[in-house]
């Protein structure tokens, strides 16, 4: 229990220990701890960011999906319209074609009719002349009465 040199020795040892701790022990440990803290903080914020990104990506994907659906619907509608149009077009064409055929047939019929009438007319004139010859028992001067006969034929 005597106070002696031990006191000074202890104080010196204390000073040396403190110096060593300040210089060689404290900085590396606290730096490692701070670095870990930063790492953890970074990791947490990265995780936050990632979940945010995921949310955004999901939203984007949903949007794309919706857009694709809309596009598909539009395409289908367009295709339907186009098909209808094609059907309509071909219908019209067919109608036109038919009309044309009908018209052609009409024209041919008309032609045939005109031809037949002309033939008939010619024959009627000849018949009339022959009838008249028979009636008059004399030959009618075809040249002299041709004008009258033509008039008659035109009236038919």
């Amino acid at each position: 229990m005597n106070i002696n040199l031990t006191l000074i020795g202890q104080a010196i040892a204390f000073a040396i220990f403190v110096w060593f701790c300040v210089k060689y022990v404290w900085p590396p440990i606290t730096e490692a701890m701070a670095a870990r803290q930063k790492k953890i903080a970074d990791g947490l914020s990265a995780a936050d960011r990632a979940s945010l990104d995921l949310e955004l990506a999901q939203e984007k994907a949903a949007q794309e999906m919706r857009a694709a659906k809309e596009q598909a619907a539009a395409l289908i509608e367009q295709a339907n319209k186009r098909a209808n149009q094609i059907v309509e077009d071909s219908k019209g064409e067919a109608r036109q074609e038919g009309q044309k055929l009908i018209d052609q047939a009409h024209a041919e019929i008309e032609q045939e009719r005109v031809k037949a009438r002309d033939a008939l007319r010619a024959e009627v004139a000849a018949l009339a002349v022959a009838g008249a010859e028979k009636i008059l028992e004399k030959s009618v001067d075809a040249n002299a009465h041709s004008e009258m006969l033509e008039k008659l034929a035109a009236e038919l």
Binding site: A13, F20, V25, P27, P28, I29, E31, A32, M33, K38
Partner: peptide, 19 residues
């Protein structure tokens, strides 16, 4: 005891990892 403290802590300080 002082040397035990410093050795132990210095050892850790040298190998300190942030992992």
């Amino acid at each position: 005891m002082g040397l035990l403290f410093l050795t132990l802590f210095r050892l850790v300080a040298k190998r300190a990892t942030s992992g």
